[in-house]
């Protein structure tokens, strides 16, 4: 079973192009539909938890799926934890080897004018890619919606604007105030949430 789990996640890892959400789709087709290790309901729980807990979604969902699959097959706690580790390892192994190879080639040939030019164009495109990631996350699941809880929408937009402005504004000359880092901001937001929605 552990070997089967490892091979399944090895496959999921290599065929994940485009980040965590693409991997989630693959986990669904392999783990839920093909192997039948998880039910659709359990898979939805997996999704919510992978997004809520810290860490990359791809790793979180692989770890959780590995654990849940072993549990579903009737293995004990210890072997289920082993399953979680095996699934996480499987998912990162091949992609890491691949990307290190490409990175080596890239740093070897980076002086070539054609490579320089391609990198310059890619940097421009990547800015657009990050912008679209931010845009696609501005949805009802993250902000609330007009026909839902108005309070949540207002609080969300206010928090968004505050965090954006604080991060983007340049530091004033000579000011002693330190700009809070992203981690501090997330912790503050969590406290605000607990207080505001009490």
């Amino acid at each position: 079973m552990l070997l089967k789990l490892f091979l399944t996640f090895l496959k999921i890892g290599v065929f994940t192009f485009g980040g965590g959400y693409a991997m989630v789709a693959l986990i669904q087709s392999e783990v839920v539909e093909r192997q039948g290790w998880l039910t659709t309901q359990e898979f939805t729980d997996l999704l919510a938890l992978s997004q809520m807990t810290p860490g990359p979604i791809g790793i979180n969902s692989a770890t959780y799926a590995g654990y849940a699959a072993m549990q579903a097959e009737g293995y004990g706690q210890g072997l289920s934890v082993a399953g979680a580790v095996v699934a996480s390892l499987g998912v990162v192994l091949l992609p890491v080897v691949l990307i290190l190879g490409v990175n080596y080639l890239l740093s070897r040939y980076k002086e070539l004018p054609v490579v320089q030019f391609v990198l310059k164009m890619l940097r421009l495109a990547v800015v657009g890619i990050i912008a679209s990631a931010a845009l696609s996350l501005m949805n009802a699941a993250n902000f609330g919606s007009l026909d839902g809880d108005m309070k949540q929408l207002v609080v969300s937009v206010a928090l968004f604007v505050a965090a954006f402005v604080v991060t983007v504004l340049p530091k004033r000359e000579g000011s002693k105030m330190r700009r809070p880092g992203p981690i501090a901001m997330l912790l503050i937001a969590a406290l605000v949430g607990v207080a505001v929605y009490w």
Binding site: R123, V126, V161, M185, G193, Y197
Partner: peptide
């Protein structure tokens, strides 16, 4: 509740580097 407030801040944190990185991408 904590996560309800954290999520919009996560989105803002992703949006903000776009401005800075746009400058360095010339």
């Amino acid at each position: 509740h904590a996560f309800m407030a954290v999520r919009p801040v996560v989105v803002a944190l992703i949006a903000a580097p776009v401005v800075r990185l746009a400058k360095s991408a010339k």
